[in-house]
Design a binder for these strands. Sequence first.
DNA 1: TCGACTGTACGAGTCTGATCGTACTGCATG
DNA 2: CATGCAGTACGATCAGACTCGTACAGTCGA
Lengths: 126, 126
Amino acid sequence: MPSTVGPLSAVKVLPEPAGLPGPLPEPAVEDLRLETVLGALSDPLRLLIVRKLLLESEQFDHPCGWFGIDRPKSSLTHHFKALREAGVTRQRQYGLERRSHVRVADLNARFPGLLDLVAAWTPDAP
Amino acid sequence: MPSTVGPLSAVKVLPEPAGLPGPLPEPAVEDLRLETVLGALSDPLRLLIVRKLLLESEQFDHPCGWFGIDRPKSSLTHHFKALREAGVTRQRQYGLERRSHVRVADLNARFPGLLDLVAAWTPDAP
DNA sequence: TCGACTGTACGAGTCTGATCGTACTGCATG
DNA sequence: CATGCAGTACGATCAGACTCGTACAGTCGA
């Protein structure tokens, strides 16, 4: 997984007209890479985040605090950014909060069945 | 991805009666972990290996040389070991060679659809 | 028995990612 | 305007992975 989104030419950069809720920079659907997405999902914490989004929301965006993860804010920022830059989630700025949801349609179009595996995943045991 | 197979209790250790072609140590089906498998598949080189095994063999084992990858032997050993320890491939010792194949049945049982994504993957572009 | 061959083990160098503290930005509400 | 809050940016630290050279082990055929 690259530290940045990748070559800037491949990134949807929406300058975002001062304060309006628009999606943060993310890879376009056609630029989603399987190895990058799998890398983003190879972390248990991020798997937990995506699974929770899939099972308990799907239609609404959620801020970081909604997940109830007991980690420092800077750690959460790191993981949410990783998910967004891999193309797994989309983030929008709603006033104070930055809310996330899974790019279900995009991921199902490019990697059908992948999200089912995430939804069926369990944090620890068999 | 752990550097070892994991807790030794969770590893199928077949003492392998002196020279007979038996599977090398690998995680049991029920011990396969999604995050570990995804981590193993998040590397382009390993994705290439698994895809080649899926598309061009499926029924037969193949030694490292068969893949025609232009890397030092020690690098290849590293990746084949990573795949085996994650439970993606099985390796058997046939005389001189150590041959690999994908654990198709096991992976389809635990993570249905995952191998289809790997088979559909392309090394570089959309 | 002596190479030739396949693959491993071990170690070093390098790099990336995970974690987290601290300081900061931006928005909202009083 | 002042305060509080959500989240980021930056930097440090640490662990793990990737890459590879070198040395070694086991097997097969001449």
